[in-house]
């Protein structure tokens, strides 16, 4: 497989033969099965594929939020500590797929955004909260609202703002713009790309919209039923050079978002 980051040691995120198995009431669910991927520093890597195929689980496994039963995850060449230390949250932040569940219902937006700063003893919280709201296109008057007083897309933007508060190096983005209208989506994608450039960020992002993936990612992994089906470079994707039937079916069902 041709990649720009295969020489081991150069990848910032290195996942090898990852297997995740959920157990509930005697049943085993193999959510991820033997998935490997590498993301070089400053790259943006996409995950696409079937609903339920394990995309969110991979991101959660990096944050120690899923039961890893095999394989390894390394960040900058180092195995991750269990549980993840405080350094981890300054280095890696995740935007969850489900912004309602990920925001504390009884905390104001102000508290949600300033808390990570307080935990890490970072000053200038007021200024930073205002800036973060502006960055994601929310009026600063929303500071004192609660999550239930926001629309779905407004909550999603709060979740993105929160992930940016600690200025992490790596962002794990799970469907970050699927609840946003096209204009806010454009603003958020532009913001993410600008930050990636300016701060040298690395992204691992999930989306069902191949046009978003194409716009944002250098490479993409297609998943189905817990397994990696095919990895594609951005050019391979745009030129329909996929080799598996499944990846092709996703591409063909996306005919409405190709450059005419």
């Amino acid at each position: 497989m041709m990649t720009t980051a295969t020489a081991s040691g150069t990848a910032l995120i290195e996942i090898k033969d990852l297997t995740v198995t959920y157990r509930s009431k005697g049943r085993e669910v193999r959510a991820v099965e033997g998935v490997s991927l590498q993301v070089a520093a400053r790259q943006s890597y996409g995950l696409v594929g079937e609903s339920g195929s394990g995309k969110s689980t991979i991101l959660r496994a990096i944050c120690d939020l899923a039961p890893v039963t095999g394989g390894s995850i390394r960040i900058a060449g180092e195995a991750l500590e269990d549980p993840r230390g405080t350094d981890f949250s300054r280095q890696v932040q995740m935007v969850f797929q489900d912004p309602y569940a990920s925001l504390h219902p009884r905390h104001t937006i102000d508290r949600t955004l300033s808390e990570p700063l307080a935990i890490h003893g970072i000053k200038g919280s007021d200024q930073k909260v205002m800036q973060a709201l502006q960055d994601v296109g929310l009026p600063t008057s929303f500071r004192f609202r609660y999550p239930h007083q926001l629309s779905g897309g407004q909550r999603q933007r709060v979740a993105i703002a929160r992930a940016l508060m600690l200025e992490p190096k790596i962002l794990l983005l799970d469907e970050p713009t699927s609840a946003l209208d096209a204009s806010v989506q454009a603003e958020v994608l532009n913001l993410l790309n600008r930050l990636r450039e300016e701060r040298g960020l690395t992204f691992l992002m999930v989306s069902h919209d191949l046009a978003v993936i194409d716009h944002m990612c250098d490479r993409v992994l297609v998943m189905q039923h817990g397994r990696a089906v095919e990895e594609l470079s951005r050019d391979d994707l745009a030129e329909a050079k996929m080799t598996t039937a499944y990846a092709r079916s996703l591409f063909e069902a996306s005919a409405d978002r190709m450059l005419a």
């Binding site: 096209a182 454009a186 046009a211 194409d214 716009h215 978002r257």
Partner: peptide, 20 residues
């Protein structure tokens, strides 16, 4: 009209998307 303009496209340019 503005919304339709902001959409990314497969194989489209990589620069900033037009805003509204």
């Amino acid at each position: 009209q503005g919304l339709l303009n902001c959409l990314p496209r497969i194989g489209g340019a990589r620069g900033p998307l037009p805003g509204l």
